[in-house]
Nucleic acid binder design. Structure first.
Lengths: 109, 109
DNA sequence: GGCACATGCCAACAAAACTTAGCACGTGCC
DNA sequence: GGCACGTGCTAAGTTTTGTTGGCATGTGCC
């Protein structure tokens, strides 16, 4: 793992990622097992385009991982699966995280 | 506490509220002790108008509470303080919360 | 009265997030 | 070839969120 973003900014990103019903449903679905995009889209009854955006955000936040695989009949299928994580939120843990928050919005400014 | 919103929607609201640097800083500040709006605005170096919006969101999410008090010299001062909370986020806890998610956006629709 | 301090609200703009629709590409099979 | 299934992208629209600035209220004090 690249220790890129400070813990504080990281927390913000993860929380922002998880504060969306669609993405929570994706997390719930993937917790029950890995699947590929089209399958998941049908399962959740949302468009592929929409699901892909949400999956990318989840992956960007480091909450899920993906691997491209070829099915027996040669079709490219992208599988996603949960990455285990455990975040304990309390006023104190947040106060700690704030210590490592980057000043402005974009890190560079 | 009014058991209004389903646990799932509640979680979404809390996470959305906490996914903002300004609000995290407010939480951090209030964790160190209660204060009133103007004081907090100076402390965090942001405008009162902006701070008030964020405080309202925090209060709406049930993370902080406020009480209007009169100082010795009769000035009305609004004090805010943290409400203790503890949220454990894991793929499983999220999967559970999803069970109680309201279908569409606004509960009524 | 005028200044310093406190509160509140709102209109307006700016920015970010979400969603849709359509296009591209590829495969296997009738 | 045409259809069903898989992938990816992006432009354009809507909606939500964040932020600013102004103006209202109130108090005490010189």
């Amino acid at each position: 793992m690249t220790d890129s973003a400070p813990a504080g900014d990281d927390l913000v990103r993860v929380l922002a990622t998880l504060s969306n019903p669609h993405r929570l449903r994706v997390v719930a679905a993937l917790t029950r097992g890995r699947t590929y995009v089209s399958q998941l889209a049908r399962q959740l009854d949302i468009s592929r385009a929409l699901l892909q955006v949400h999956l990318k955000k989840l992956e960007a936040a480091g909450l899920v991982s993906s691997q491209l695989e070829l099915s027996e009949d040669g079709k490219a299928m992208k599988f996603y699966e949960m990455k285990p994580f455990s975040i304990h939120l309390t006023p104190e843990s947040i106060a700690d995280a704030v210590e490592t928050l980057t000043d402005e919005k974009g890190s560079s400014r």
